[in-house]
């Protein structure tokens, strides 16, 4: 499944970059995130509780940020598995400065799901993923405001 989108920020690019790499912020904005522990080398261990359609449950997994070109381009990879199945995500994130002010995050995400979550939830998965992405950015903005 491929989903993608764009998100505009009023804050300067560097600040957005830092926020996207800040474990404290990430922990609060990743949907269903119960625990997020930095393991070093851009890698986190994560425990998430999520419900997709009728398939609810806990996933444990790893999230890794590969900074290709700081502060403009990074790739987030995530693998998680749990009783509802497994998720494999690769998300390409590009930050562009905007002419007037602020910046824009252009993201492109390839997600593969397996197990029950695919068999039962695939029909609604795209919609849920979009909803979660929207919530992620909304929460991120409010977190950034709170921190400022």
């Amino acid at each position: 499944m491929n989903i993608n989108g764009k998100e505009k920020f009023e804050d300067p690019l560097e600040k957005v970059w830092d926020s996207l790499h800040d474990p404290e912020i990430l922990k609060n904005i990743i949907p269903g995130c119960e625990e997020l522990n930095y393991q070093g080398d851009g890698e986190y261990e994560v425990i998430m509780k999520l419900g997709v359609a009728a398939v609810k449950g806990e996933y444990t997994g790893k999230v890794k940020l590969d900074d290709i070109e700081k502060p403009y381009h990074y790739i987030l990879t995530a693998q998680g598995s749990g009783s509802p199945g497994h998720v494999d995500v690769e998300m390409d994130c590009k930050l562009n400065e905007l002419e007037d002010e602020g910046c824009e995050l252009v993201w492109d995400c390839q997600a593969d799901v397996g197990g029950k979550i695919a068999g039962v939830g695939s029909r609604v998965l795209g919609g849920i993923a979009k909803y979660m992405a929207g919530k992620f950015f909304k929460d991120m903005k409010s977190q950034m405001k709170a921190k400022a």
């Binding site: 593969d112 799901v113 397996g114 197990g115 029950k116 695919a118 068999g119 039962v120 695939s122 029909r123």
Partner: peptide, 14 residues
């Protein structure tokens, strides 16, 4: 099935 061999029609909803 999707390209990864996951059955997408796993219930009578699909």
């Amino acid at each position: 099935y999707d390209d990864n061999g996951q059955l997408l029609t796993g219930t009578y909803m699909d």
